[in-house]
Design a protein around this nucleic acid. Structure first.
Lengths: 344, 344
DNA sequence: TCGACCACCGTAAACGTTTACGGAACTATG
DNA sequence: CATAGTTCCGTAAACGTTTACGGTGGTCGA
């Protein structure tokens, strides 16, 4: 005799009542419910998840899909860990188990997602690293699996999303640099087709145009989102005959490599080239200090979780006015890296 | 009609045979097996995991428990991501699903593990961040849940483990620095009770003793394993009246903070203080270059996975001679950070 | 020809839950 | 007192698998 049956026998009531009591159904006497809860705690009874899943067609698991491997090591890790932390705290309140689904660098993300879904792994999903045209959106929508994405995409299927304000960052950065007299401004973007790259570059071009300037295509640098990528950008940029006087670094970690590249060439950030980037725990240890944008990653995670739950029927009533689509604001922390000013 | 029943109906054979065919049982005609596989692919049939789990008492999931949150952000992330990548590739071969169980910084790791286990979440576990006395070991052993740990512990319960060679690193580092004339050598260790700290510090002391030297307790610096921790160590160390001439940095990321602390004080690694640390993708962008140990994180992950599978009855025959307990060797990459030599 | 053996397959029970349904006991209402 | 309504509980079916067991038809050796 195991499981709920054992508990029922111990209390000398039926398993149906036990189940109802444990699941908070209304049609059970409060006195019996108390006894059941008590006995459950005493005997250390925990419902078997397989049994529940089989019956209810639900797993109680939410998956947070991220990519792993060397390519994005610099980028993904510390950032996503913090976001994950925020997500975790929300789901814990609902006794939902959150797991990280790390798609290996060797595997295609679409294939990986297909496997996860076929397996019936999760009740809901959080996607990150959204591509400009991301097939995963359609795929999940077609199967009616609730999901939320960290990042917009052109392939919008009506799902909730949150995103960083790449357009705002581009706008503010360009305005700021132009005000300091810069005319030739470089921009970085991730090497793949991730959507944020487009948003950032396009908005940079628009912002420049508003000042009567154009974004020189030669000044758009694609880079892997890690230290090595930033180093490589520095090498390319410094080898140019008509070198830009300022640069926007869209990614958090490439600043470290870019600094290194400059110092090897005997140049100093903020003196020879103006830099605006993004803050991270690591960037605090750059010298000269980095001017860059920052945000609460943990709060972002919380908002992500709430947006997802708001679209899941079983939980939506908890979050009647969750923000389903939001561009997340960032603050600019002023440092020394963009001190370089050109004469008017 | 759904699931396996639908498939059986479509083929006009019994569900029992279908199941046997799909699971590679011997007592099914190869011709029928072919047909079943074909039809399964055609209809896109995928066995329901809840059904399997319920019947077999097994989940097909392996959990890799890590910690998240600000405290270890610097440390854990890129390192564990790479290890995870290695683990993933092994489990994929056996159609086991690997998920990352990220214990939030707010939650006690022991409680978290208890929840995971009570839920019957995984068939096996990989533990990291092992403490000197780690209650999780006993807990899992008592419940007969297969697990492997990345890191030794005093609370050994016979489970397989892999670990980095902290003792070897300490020995080689001390020998090397002493040969360069250093006598006052500082050592870092993580601020918590993680076991590697003990191994590293103890072996450093022994190695010094072999040269007739002693490890000054004031020269053992506890730090959080991130950039900020390294920065803090530098501040403390540089404020000493009788400053050490060399230091060992046990953690990968603190070097960045330590460098920053030195340069703010107008000092240069490798010229004013000799440093031996650990290599990481980030440390490649330090200047002067870091002398430090390195290893293949991915291979470590592969070995971890194999050690775990070797102890699980259903898979052990695949890995008859897996290394169940191994101190993982590291290579020393020579850089400029320990160039500082004292006159004899 | 007969029994033994083998290869293959169908049947049905089990895994641990949840929940629709119906019924018993009680209360309220006229 | 009869009826209707309410509260609570037990029964049993279902979720989708796997697998022990038994049965059928065939082959082979004596």
């Amino acid at each position: 005799m195991t499981g709920i049956r054992r508990l029922a026998q111990h209390l000398d009531i039926s398993i149906g009542t036990v189940s109802r009591a444990l699941n908070g159904r209304p049609d059970v006497n409060e006195e019996t419910r108390r006894k059941v809860l008590e006995a459950a705690a005493e005997l250390g009874y925990v419902p078997n998840q397989s049994g529940r899943s089989l019956r209810q067609g639900t797993t109680n698991i939410i998956g947070f899909m991220m990519q792993t491997g060397t390519e994005i090591t610099g980028q993904g890790d510390t950032f996503f860990m913090s976001v994950f932390d925020g997500v975790q705290t929300v789901f814990a309140r609902h006794r939902l188990d959150l797991v990280a689904l790390l798609c290996s660098s060797e595997e295609d993300p679409d294939d990986y997602l297909r496997r996860v879904v076929a397996r019936g792994f999760a009740d809901g999903l959080i996607l990150s690293a959204t591509q400009r045209n991301d097939p995963r959106f359609e795929f999940l929508a077609k199967r009616k699996i609730p999901f939320v994405t960290l990042g917009r995409s052109l392939t919008d299927v009506g799902q909730p999303w949150l995103d960083l304000d790449f357009e705002g960052m581009a706008q503010i950065s360009i305005d700021r640099l132009v005000a300091k007299g810069h005319r030739r401004i470089a921009v970085t973007r991730p090497h793949d087709d991730i959507n944020l790259g487009h948003l950032f570059v396009d908005q940079s071009a628009k912002a420049l145009a508003a000042h009567g300037l154009t974004l020189d295509p030669d000044l758009v640098f694609s880079s892997k989102p890690n230290e090595a990528g930033g180093y490589h950008v520095a090498q390319q940029l410094l080898a140019m005959k008509d070198r830009p006087t300022a640069i926007l670094l869209v990614n958090e970690t490439i600043a470290i490599g870019f600094y290194r590249g400059m110092s090897e060439a005997g140049l100093k950030p903020g003196r020879d080239i103006a830099i605006i980037g993004r803050q991270s725990p690591q960037s605090h240890f750059l010298s000269p200090s980095l001017t860059g944008f920052t945000l609460s990653r943990r709060d972002l995670g919380i908002a992500l979780a709430e947006a997802l739950l708001a679209t899941m029927p079983a939980f939506s009533h908890f979050y009647p006015d969750a923000e389903l689509r939001k561009v997340w604001p960032e603050d600019l922390v002023e440092g020394e890296s963009d001190a370089f000013t050109l004469p008017a």
